[in-house]
Design a protein around this nucleic acid. Structure first.
Length: 243
DNA sequence: CCCTGATTCGC
DNA sequence: GCGAATCAGG
């Protein structure tokens, strides 16, 4: 049976995607495979994220070599700094991760910058479609998701509510006793989500009762403090332990 | 080996 | 439309 992509799921997919999480990571959170994520992302039309590779390696390579136009090969954005060659030291120790627990590589860190607000205004986010400053590219400090898991015990004794997260679906993995892999979102100054209200979905989309949390979100995040906990708390569990 | 994302293609 | 299989680079 195919995954049921509801408005909620899609909304979260978009959000996570936008946050720069890897497809596998998103997949874990959504309880689907990375393939599903990437596939859906494609169909959704979003997907400008940096790719470690591009298909047709050999062919492309030959073509590129033969063709006198290698300029700006993979750099769609007019980034002032060369993502690969120029920025060897993004300061952010993004790659210490993956040691044993954190599989996330620094890939995204090395190649930042969606910079292209492709589908910027997520249907789910009631945010203002402010002109993106596209700062990520300019700032080499775009940390990336890797840092999230690698560092950041930023959620110590937060004393979560005893009660369970209401938003049935989104909750899933949260609330697991061993949720120390929680990710505190990386401090990304340049990258601001101009959300002015928590966009955590409540209720069933399509029904009159559906609404977004609306609370004041944490700076740089689309969710308020409470929902950020739920949204970002995740385990490295496999998709089989879905609630 | 692990990771990453991209594309293909059967369903 | 979905996503496993496959591909391809790091």
């Amino acid at each position: 049976m195919a995954m049921e992509w509801t408005e909620e799921t899609i909304a979260r997919l978009r959000d996570l995607w936008q946050q720069g999480l890897s497809t596998a990571e998103i997949g874990r959170q959504l309880a689907v495979t990375k393939n599903a994520v990437v596939g859906k992302a494609h169909r959704l039309g979003l997907k400008p994220r940096p790719s470690p590779i591009r298909r047709g390696g050999k062919a492309a390579e030959k073509a590129a070599a033969a063709t006198p136009a290698p300029a700006a090969v993979e750099a769609p954005a007019a980034v002032p700094v060369a993502p690969v060659a120029a920025g060897p030291a993004p300061v952010v120790a993004a790659h210490p991760a993956r040691a044993e627990a954190a599989p996330a590589t620094a890939t995204p860190a090395a190649t930042p910058a969606p910079a292209e607000p492709v589908v910027a205004p997520p249907a789910s986010a009631p945010v203002a479609s402010a002109p993106v400053a596209s700062a990520p590219a300019a700032q080499p400090t775009q940390v990336a998701p890797a840092a999230q898991k690698a560092a950041a015990p930023a959620t110590p004794p937060v004393a979560p509510k005893a009660e369970e997260p209401a938003p049935a679906k989104p909750a899933r993995k949260a609330a697991t006793p061993r949720a120390e892999r929680a990710a505190a979102h990386a401090p990304t100054p340049p990258r601001r989500r101009s959300s002015q209200s928590c966009c955590w979905p409540l209720g069933d989309p399509g029904t009159p009762g559906f609404h977004f949390c609306g609370a004041t979100p944490l700076p740089g995040k689309p969710y308020c403090a409470e929902h950020a906990q739920l949204a970002y708390v995740k385990l490295r569990d496999r998709r089989d332990n879905v609630a």
